[in-house]
Design a protein around this nucleic acid. Structure first.
Lengths: 234, 234
DNA sequence: ACCTGAACACCGTTCAAGT
DNA sequence: ACCTGAACACCGTTCAAGT
């Protein structure tokens, strides 16, 4: 009883939806999204799993909330979701906004699967898309072309890289790539040819791990340049 | 004992990895990927869950196998993964191959999440990408530009649509959209403006449900046209 | 009011045992 | 050899009970 007043006070920070969502992001950042269980989340908060249900309806609500917090991080990093109403260079404005979103997503590599599994679009996420659409409109797009543009950007507009080859282990990827070079030249001639040329041009490059930032920028600008051409032509 | 010879024979079709994977695809097609559990899969095969482990190492191996079967379906639909070695119109060849992949993916809407959660690239999937790369090379791409092109296409090269707005319930989406039009004009001005124009131009269109095929084609051709421009300039 | 212990219905998977 | 029953360690979630 005597020693209880000290440390016990720390445990008395009351639970709240805010704290639960923040803790969920911490757990996912540290152990990946598959490590985010209600029990683990409770442990992170020094509480029993069942206590969480007084602040969130269920696990889906946790994931909904986590997605919203992340959009909030994007909004903060972007300095708000404002749409300047004249003299916008739409292309650099859209590029900047998407690259900001990407920065946040890089901090939370598990975030894309959370967004992809949401079944409704929350108000703040809708606000993100509305202002992105606004940048296109104020930049001279018709609604029809802007509509097509939003679909063409797809999840890339939230900073998702959409890569098919994304090893979670770069060393393993390099080993795999090296094994391919040795054994599979006749099975995958073009892949092997490409890797050999990359290795020749830049001997220090890792074979299995491309420069994500460069590749993301290439794809984004390819889209934006194509859209600008269509806008100017219309 | 007397009546056993008849129906029992049906149950004697021996289990095999092939049958397990086919059944897994059937279960996922019918109930979605979240309904694919080892117990459900066993039930589909008229067997106990534990029997599956004599033919597949674990659930991850089931998902690996399912992904391979789907790439096999693409290969069959494409008439093989050949790369004609001269006189290729790369743009229509690549477009055709990707649209074929998309046809298969539309039959298995759950497939993208299966591919996205694989941690290794299987030989047949590598073969798909190798021949796609081959189409670019034979169409006049440098390895460097072809490399960038593969990254820019990303998961779209397997027919994934990468849409952010994909309601699993079109009616619900329409209700949501209608609610937005009424209540949220000042909160999402550009979205509301876009929807009102679409509704005006095509009064029969559902607000929440766009023409996926048109949107996919628009995005794909935007990419392919941009790549052709870069190829011709180089 | 906020938190909890025990329990339930599900998972994937192991193991020893059946034919 | 192929299949199974019982069990284990995990899930998300409910409910009645505690303070």
């Amino acid at each position: 009883m005597v020693a209880e007043t000290g440390p016990v006070v720390e445990h008395r920070i009351p639970l709240s939806k805010e704290r639960v969502l923040r803790a969920a992001i911490t757990v996912a950042d540290q152990g990946g999204i598959e490590s985010l269980t209600m029990r683990k989340l409770a442990e992170e908060l020094g509480v029993e799993a069942m206590s969480l249900y007084h602040h969130v309806a269920n696990k889906e609500a946790v994931l909904d909330g986590v997605a919203d917090v992340i959009v909030g991080e994007i909004e903060e990093a972007a300095g708000g979701f404002e749409v300047p109403d004249d003299g916008v260079d739409w292309q650099s404005a859209v590029r900047q906004r998407i690259l900001t979103a990407r920065e946040i997503m890089l901090r939370h590599p598990w975030a894309p699967v959370v967004f992809e599994t949401r079944t409704t679009i929350s108000p703040i996420l809708m606000r993100y898309f509305d202002t992105l659409l606004g940048l296109l409109r104020e930049g001279g797009f018709s609604y029809d072309l802007a509509h097509n543009a939003m679909h063409a950007m797809g999840s890339r507009s939230l900073g998702f890289s959409q890569e098919m080859f994304k090893p979670d282990n770069a060393e393993q990827a390099d080993e795999d790539a090296a094994a391919m070079l040795e054994q599979m030249a006749e099975q995958f001639p073009y892949m092997v040819g490409m890797m050999m040329e990359i290795a020749h041009d830049d001997p220090d490059s890792t074979l299995g791990w491309c420069d994500d930032q460069t590749e993301f920028g290439f794809a984004l600008d390819l889209l934006l340049d194509g859209l600008e051409r269509l806008r100017a032509k219309a």
